[in-house]
Design a protein around this nucleic acid. Structure first.
Length: 666
RNA sequence: UGGCUUAUGGUGUAACUGGCAACACGUCUGGUUUUGGUCCAGAAGAGUCUAGGUUCGAGCCCUAGUAAGCCAACCA
């Protein structure tokens, strides 16, 4: 139990500061505020992890509040899915709440705003208003309705609420400042008319509050102390505070909005709108398709709550844009499953193997360890017989000694069973191997390099295996201005395989997770039934053999690597080498010098000249410059005033190395 | 012609608030192993966007640049 002091992230620091400044710990309260217009994705897992994590850390309540102010897009289905996802992740919310619970209070406040002259009804087209609003670089101008009388505003707003007007004919805006540098402060809309039924309030309302007007006030009503959201809301903070200023009671907690960078995962997208498109266009089979980065998709794929929580924790919290490598996510799920998933044997791409010296009709039930990482996992029996399936990939007629698997004349261990030796093969007319003949030995103590998984043909159970690949071929598919993310779709993201699995899997239940030995982690899909077993591949095992095989492919994938080196200007490389020159141990220093001498051949005087002005204290850079200068002089460069000046200064320096190099130029 | 935010190995986060940059993933060695998994041991890889400045000393402070992201929905 080490008491290692983990450094706090910037949000925790803010909270610690508030606590230190006198905020009582029991006033801490957080919230997770999803809009019920789509399913939660892995990015939300970070937001959930932050707010609920803080709740756990400080023993403070966390509300689940649905931000449901837009009846056009929101549905009960999403509310249910979100609740399921949050609790599946293992978090417990204090109160389940809805922004729509506050519609009446919000309305009363709005009326108060009008009476105070802080809000007015605008009756222009959205185009006209957009024009008056200006642009980020140009201030806006006041609209013609900005100075309506309080009485008229009150009357109009009342009638908006009563349903007398059509959608789009009037809106209520806060009266702030049309010239404000922050566009959100240019008289933002508070209410719009929407004649739609709301999933909770039905037809009670036909005016609905906007996000900015609703969010901060909802936080305030709930007495949220820290309202944490992603970075794109940073500009909203000013408005959030302005709205709060108008209603806040100083004796109550005033919520504080703070922003963190959202999570981005490589090779996928994280926008609800775009994910919805994948669902609607039937690119995937629903929000919970195992290829989707949604929480429900990952769950179906076989991810565990523990792995997801670990992932989010590992990723950290900060304010800069990031793209997290999927390999980290994969590491987290492997780490969890390695400890918990029972091992079984399954062959995905079979070739028949016959053990010629094993009696026909004989069968044995051999003992197999369920999980060597877990002593309590116990053992099971697997059937062995004369005819087996092994993986096609595990046999080669001839192969080098780096190939640990089965080859003609070679020996290999069958996991949980005997050692076999390959004697001959049978091929079809096309030259494909249809059968491998082997002989076995009962001496299992023998040392052999390879161990193969297998399945007895007679006892094997057919199963469908769904193997997934990334949905997109590009690392950041929605970050290209000129290309649509749909262009990067991977046409081979789903591969359906007919596999053979050991009979113990007949008892597997939906959701059960296994390690198919030597292959990866798999779970039983929701579509699975008693007469058809279906598995999803969650993630493959780490595979250091696979990596060394496609040598040529590797180069094709990263052609830039070869070209990027020479593209960098020699002088830039030299500058970099120089920078660290004085810090290097002697051996490395010589190496660096040799490199500089080599690179100096490609440096022109014009390249070098600016470095003469290098600050006196940047000794390393000046040494490098001196070395390069030596090469240039040797190649016939004439000494001019600049050169002499630089050399003289170097000679006067206190650094012995620099002086030494400079003397060599005399 | 604007405002806000960010900048540390390939990736993500640290650096006790000024003391010669750490952890995780990834990569590469070697060992163990009835999974080319796990585990164990080790290595390479950044001198902190650039240029100045303050300081005995700067990734942290100051100045000026540069680059990236966000901001003009009756969405959230």
């Amino acid at each position: 139990m080490s008491e290692e002091r983990k450094s706090l992230n910037f949000l925790e620091q803010i909270i610690e500061e508030d606590l230190a400044n006198g905020m009582p710990k029991n006033k801490l309260r957080f919230r997770f505020p999803p809009e019920p217009n789509g399913y939660l994705h892995i990015g939300h897992t970070k937001a959930i992890g932050i707010s609920f994590g803080l709740g756990e850390k400080y023993n403070a309540p966390v509300n689940l509040r649905f931000d449901d102010t837009n009846p056009a897009k929101e549905e009960q289905e999403y509310v249910d899915a979100i609740k399921e996802d949050v609790s599946w992740l293992g978090y417990t919310w204090d109160k389940e709440l809805f922004s729509s619970d506050y519609f009446k209070q919000l309305y009363d406040w709005a009326v108060h705003f009008i009476k105070e002259g802080k809000a007015y009804v605008d009756s222009q087209s959205s185009e006209a208003m957009a024009e008056q609003k200006g642009t980020p670089t140009q201030p806006g101008v006041d609209g013609p309705f900005r100075n309506r009388s309080i009485a008229e505003n009150l009357d109009l707003f009342e009638r908006m609420k009563a349903g007398e007007f059509e959608e789009g004919s009037h809106i209520l805006r806060a009266k702030i400042d049309m010239q404000h540098p922050n566009m959100l402060m240019r008289d933002p809309i508070m209410y719009r008319i929407l004649k739609k039924d709301h999933h909770r309030t039905g037809d009670d309302w036909c005016i609905y509050p906007m996000y900015d007007w609703t969010h901060g006030e909802s936080d305030y009503i709930e007495q949220i102390s820290h309202s944490l959201c992603s970075l794109e809301f940073k500009p909203h903070r000013e408005l959030y505070d302005w709205f709060l200023d108008q209603v806040v009671d100083k004796t109550l907690v005033r919520p504080k909005q703070r922003e963190f960078a959202r999570l981005n995962l490589s090779y996928t997208i994280m926008s609800k709108r775009k994910l919805l498109k994948l669902v609607e266009d039937k690119i995937v089979n629903g929000w919970d398709d195992p290829r989707m980065p949604t929480i429900s998709g990952l769950r179906r794929r076989g991810y565990t709550p523990a792995a997801l929580r670990k992932f989010v924790e590992t990723v950290g919290v900060a304010k800069r844009d990031n793209i997290i490598d999927v390999s980290l996510l994969e590491f987290c799920i492997r780490e969890d499953l390695n400890k918990t998933a029972p091992r079984v044997m399954a062959v995905l791409d079979p070739v028949k193997l016959v053990i010629t010296n094993y009696p026909e009709g004989k069968e044995e039930w051999l003992e197999a360890e369920n999980n060597q990482e877990d002593d309590s996992a116990g053992f099971r029996k697997v059937p062995f017989s004369r005819e087996l399936y092994i993986e096609k990939e595990d046999f080669k007629e001839v192969a080098g000694n780096k190939f640990f698997r089965l080859k003609l004349g070679g020996e290999v261990r069958l996991k949980n069973a005997y050692i076999i030796k390959a004697d001959s093969v049978t091929k079809d007319p096309n030259g494909n191997i249809t059968e491998i003949q082997c002989t076995y030995s009962e001496d299992t103590a023998k040392k052999v390099k390879g161990t193969l998984h297998w399945v007895s043909i007679k006892h094997a159970v057919k199963a469908e295996v769904r193997e997934y690949d990334r949905l997109f071929m590009d690392e950041a598919p929605d970050s290209h201005q000129d290309k649509d993310f749909m262009e990067f779709l991977n046409p081979e993201s789903l591969k359906i395989i007919e596999a053979y699995v050991e009979p113990s899997l007949l008892e597997a239940k939906i959701g059960d997770r296994f390690q198919f030995q030597r292959l990866g982690y798999f779970n039983v899909d929701n579509d699975s039934s008693s007469n058809k077993l279906i598995f999803n591949k969650t993630v493959g095992l780490r595979d250091s053999w696979e990596k060394q095989k496609p040598i040529e492919n590797k180069n094709q994938n990263k052609p830039q690597n070869n070209t990027s080196q020479p593209q960098r200007k020699a002088i830039d490389v030299i500058q970099q080498l120089g920078k660290k020159y004085t810090n290097l141990p002697e051996g490395k220093q010589e190496k660096a010098k040799a490199e500089i001498l080599e690179l100096a051949k490609d440096v022109s005087y014009d390249d070098l000249q600016p470095l003469f002005n290098t600050a006196a204290k940047k000794v390393g850079t000046r040494i490098a410059t001196t070395i390069v200068l030596g090469v240039l002089l040797e190649n016939g460069l004439e000494r001019n005033a600049e050169v002499n000046d630089f050399i003289n200064k170097a000679l006067e320096d206190t650094d012995a190395l620099l002086v030494k190099e400079a003397k060599m130029l005399l």
